[in-house]
C-alpha cells in the first residue's frame, strides 16, 4: 500500500495574479527547516532558487538540496499527483499553487485522493488590489469564490498600500470570516502555512518537534505559539475545546488520547478549518494531552 497508508498533508494556495503566491512559495522552499516539501506550481521557471540549492533540474521538476521538490502542474492534476506518489518516501507536505483563476473548492477533492489529505486552503490577496479586483469585469465573482473558500487569508504587500491594508481587510471580511495574516515579501511563517509537529517529541507525521515556546521571526503580525494542556478528555470534550478556540488561532495541532475512544485522535486547525479525526494507524503511546496553537496578535 502506498506509503503504508500514510496520507501527506496537502495545502492549496490560491489567489489572483499578482497576489504574491509565487513569492510565498519561494520563501517556503528556502525556509523549509528540514521538511521535505513538494511544491506544485504553474511555472517552475518562476520559482527563484539560488543555483547552489538546486540538486537537479529537468525542465518541469526542480529538486533542491534541502529535500524540497518543485513540480510544474502543466498537465492535469491526476498525472501530477501520480508523480508524487511515485516517490519511494512520502514527502512531509504538499503545497499546491493554484492558477490565478483557480477556484479552491473545485480542487479540494484532489487533495484527498490516494496518499493525501487536505490540510487547508490558504488564499493570498494583494492589499492594494483586492478591493478593485473583487469588482473587476469577468473575474470579480471568481475572486469572491476564492476568498469564500479560504481557511486562512494571507494579506500581501500591505507595506505598499497607502492605508496599510485596512480597506483590503474590510473587503476580504465581506466574503470570509477566515483569519487574516499580514505577510510582507512572501515571508510567511512556515509553521503557519505548513503546520507544526505534534507536541510529543515523537510526532506521528513529521517526526519533528520544536522546543516551546518558539520565537517566531520578524512578521508584521506578532505570532505567539502556546501549548494548551488538555488533561483527561473525552472525544466530545475535545471537540468542544477545538470548536471554542478563539478566532485568532491560525494553526493548531494535537494527537490526543481520549478517555472514551480507543485510537488516538488527531486535531488539525488551519484558520477556520478545524478537523478532528481518529488515527487507528497510530499507537496511543505517541499521543499527548496537549495542543500546540499559533495565534495571531494584531
Amino acid at each position: 500500500m502506498l506509503w503504508n497508508g500514510h496520507r501527506v498533508p496537502f495545502t492549496l494556495l490560491g489567489g489572483y495574479l499578482g497576489a504574491g503566491k509565487t513569492t510565498i512559495v519561494n520563501h517556503v522552499v528556502r525556509n523549509a527547516g528540514g521538511r521535505r516539501i513538494v511544491v506544485l506550481v504553474n511555472d517552475v521557471a518562476a520559482v527563484n532558487i539560488d543555483a547552489a540549492l538546486i540538486a537537479d533540474h529537468d525542465g518541469t521538476t526542480l529538486s533542491l538540496s534541502n529535500g524540497c521538490v518543485c513540480c510544474s502542474i502543466a498537465d492535469d492534476f491526476a498525472q501530477t499527483l501520480e508523480q508524487i506518489r511515485a516517490m519511494s518516501e512520502a514527502p512531509d507536505h504538499v503545497l499546491m499553487e493554484l492558477s490565478g483563476v483557480g477556484e479552491p473548492e473545485r480542487v479540494v477533492p484532489w487533495a484527498n485522493t490516494t496518499g493525501f489529505r487536505l490540510d487547508g486552503i490558504v488564499v493570498a490577496a494583494d492589499a492594494d488590489q483586492i478591493d478593485e479586483l473583487a469588482d473587476r469585469p469577468f473575474v470579480g465573482d471568481t475572486i469572491g469564490a476564492q476568498l469564500r473558500a479560504a481557511d486562512l487569508v494571507v494579506l500581501t504587500k500591505s507595506d505598499l498600500a497607502a492605508d496599510g491594508g485596512s480597506v483590503a481587510r474590510r473587503r476580504i471580511q465581506t466574503f470570509s470570516s477566515a483569519p487574516i495574516v499580514d505577510v510582507v515579501n512572501g515571508a510567511i511563517d512556515v509553521d503557519v502555512l505548513i503546520g507544526l509537529g505534534s507536541p510529543t517529541g515523537v510526532s506521528g507525521e513529521t517526526g519533528r518537534m520544536r522546543a516551546l515556546p518558539v520565537e517566531h521571526g520578524e512578521y508584521p503580525d506578532h505570532h505567539a505559539t502556546r501549548l494548551i494542556e488538555l488533561g483527561s478528555v473525552t472525544h466530545e470534550e475535545l471537540s468542544s475545546i477545538v470548536d471554542s478556540l478563539p478566532v485568532d488561532v491560525i494553526r493548531a495541532k494535537a494527537l490526543v488520547r481520549c478517555s472514551d475512544v480507543a485510537p488516538p485522535v488527531e486535531v488539525h486547525v488551519v484558520g477556520k478549518r478545524r478537523t478532528i479525526r481518529p488515527r487507528p494507524d497510530l499507537d496511543q503511546a505517541v499521543a499527548a494531552q496537549a495542543m500546540v496553537v499559533i495565534t495571531v496578535v494584531a
Binding site: 491526476a78 501520480e82 477533492p109 490516494t114
Partner: peptide, 17 residues
C-alpha cells in the same frame, strides 16, 4: 464520480494516458 475519484483507479488511469 468525477476525475479525483476516478484517479483512485490508478493503474487504469496510467493505461489511458
Amino acid at each position: 464520480q468525477e476525475p479525483p475519484a476516478m484517479s483512485l483507479a490508478r493503474r487504469e488511469m496510467l493505461m489511458l494516458w
